[in-house]
């Protein structure tokens, strides 16, 4: 068996059951006994952070993570990605299809995880250097030296191209005591919000605040991208279920709202099959 390909992991260890080598009798996550010790003691957030960070989180990390997770767990039924999940759910597709639909739409440059990844990578490089941030935000595609599967940014990442002032929700997030007074990136965003918005002519979006949180949690850009998608799934789940339960008759259908600019008109009649199908 020694020349057989083998998985390698620094995250997880299963101890085999004495009577079945394919069944774990003990499982360890970063060295912690998951079912023997963590279960019953660790909260869900603690466990998620342990998975991503590689160790048990500190209480302040846990608080920051929980705040952020609550902030993004559901963006409501107007959100593009949630609507994707709902459009899957309303037809009665499998649950996984609803979440896959959400993930696809939530992954992009516009309020998505790829935008977030870019922001976290800039936090890693610029920290809180306002001037460097402004240069990058004003020309977000400068470092793009060749084609990529991701298209160019059409707006400064982290900002809302269709709004000029941040929402009250974003202000509330930034003003949360326990965050801005503790985490420099949050207070920096709070202090510079007006400068940013005046300079760029658009509103600071939630993704920028979330990126600041991931930065303080020590998440790499890739970890932040993935974790943010995961943390946004609950909203997709419940709204897709609701759409399924409500049924298609109650779900908005925009067939009559289509304005076709190049309609050739009726080219020919439907075939006459009345002899076969009266």
């Amino acid at each position: 068996m020694d020349n057989v390909p083998k998985f390698k992991t620094a995250i997880w260890r299963d101890e085999a059951s004495p009577d079945n080598e394919f069944l774990a009798q003990k499982s360890y996550c970063h060295g912690y006994d998951v079912y023997g010790e963590m279960l019953g003691q660790a909260s869900f957030s603690e466990y998620i952070l342990t998975l991503f960070l590689g160790h048990k989180p500190e209480p302040d990390q846990l608080y920051l993570f929980d705040c952020m997770a609550v902030a993004i767990a559901n963006s409501g039924p107007r959100d593009l990605a949630i609507r994707a999940a709902m459009n899957s759910g309303v037809g009665g597709a499998p649950a996984a299809a609803n979440l896959m639909s959400f993930l696809a739409v939530a992954s992009g440059n516009y309020q998505g995880s790829h935008e977030l990844q870019q922001l976290v990578s800039w936090f890693v490089r610029f920290d809180l250097d306002y001037d460097k941030w402004i240069i990058a935000l004003n020309a977000p595609n400068t470092e793009r030296s060749r084609e990529d599967i991701w298209e160019k940014f059409e707006h400064p990442p982290g900002f809302l191209p269709h709004a000029q002032q941040a929402s009250q929700n974003t202000h509330d997030f930034l003003a949360l005591r326990g965050l801005w007074n503790k985490y420099p990136a949050i207070s920096w965003l709070k202090q510079n919000l007006e400068n940013f918005e005046n300079t760029l002519g658009m509103a600071l979006g939630m993704n920028f605040v979330v990126a600041a949180c991931f930065y303080h949690l020590g998440f790499s850009p890739d970890k932040a991208e993935l974790c943010s998608l995961m943390l946004r799934l609950p909203g997709a789940a419940v709204h897709s279920l609701e759409a399924k339960q409500q049924g298609w008759k109650q779900f908005p259908f925009f067939g009559q709202q289509i304005e076709l600019r190049n309609d050739p008109g009726e080219v020919g009649p439907l075939p006459d099959v009345s002899e076969i199908l009266p």
Partner: peptide, 18 residues
Amino acid sequence: LPVRCDRVEYTGESQRPW
């Protein structure tokens, strides 16, 4: 392609208390 427990090489932290 079932994978036995011992066919995964673990390179992480040793066992530690939560």
